[in-house]
């Protein structure tokens, strides 16, 4: 690599010889912490509780129901009303959960 290419210039903040060794050293330090965390806790941060996925499943289920109903038509009113009702119940349940946990 030529000196011109290696050096800091218009595009780069630092020259390659200063940047990459420090970058790789910091990357290694962070990967070591990541490794430790993955082995002990399975994640860098608090893991997602299983009930969180239930919210996804709920939404997916309604999306499928609406896709089928929209495709076959006509869409019955009960489908609309029960969707909004169940969404409200989900919001209330999550609210209760968060209040219970003091957040």
């Amino acid at each position: 690599m030529s000196e011109k290419k290696k050096g800091a210039g218009f595009w780069f903040g630092m020259d390659a010889e200063t940047f990459y060794p420090a970058f790789h050293a910091e990357l290694e330090r962070r990967l070591k912490i990541l490794d430790e965390k993955l082995r002990t806790e399975g994640s860098l941060v608090t893991k997602c509780p299983m009930w969180s996925y239930a919210a996804l499943a709920f939404a997916m289920l309604w999306a499928i129901v609406f896709a089928v109903l929209g495709y076959v038509n006509p869409i019955p009113l009960w489908a609309h009303m029960s969707f909004y009702g169940s969404l409200l119940i989900l919001v209330v349940l999550i609210g209760i959960d968060r209040v219970r946990k003091g957040r």
Binding site: L56, A59, M60, W62, A63, I64, F66, A67, L69, G70, N73, P74, I75, A79, H80, F83
Partner: peptide, 18 residues
């Protein structure tokens, strides 16, 4: 409206939650 709402929720939902 009735049909547009189902198209929106089904479309946004299936795409996002996948």
């Amino acid at each position: 409206a009735t049909e547009a709402i189902t198209a929106a929720i089904a479309g946004e939902g299936l795409g996002l939650f996948a």
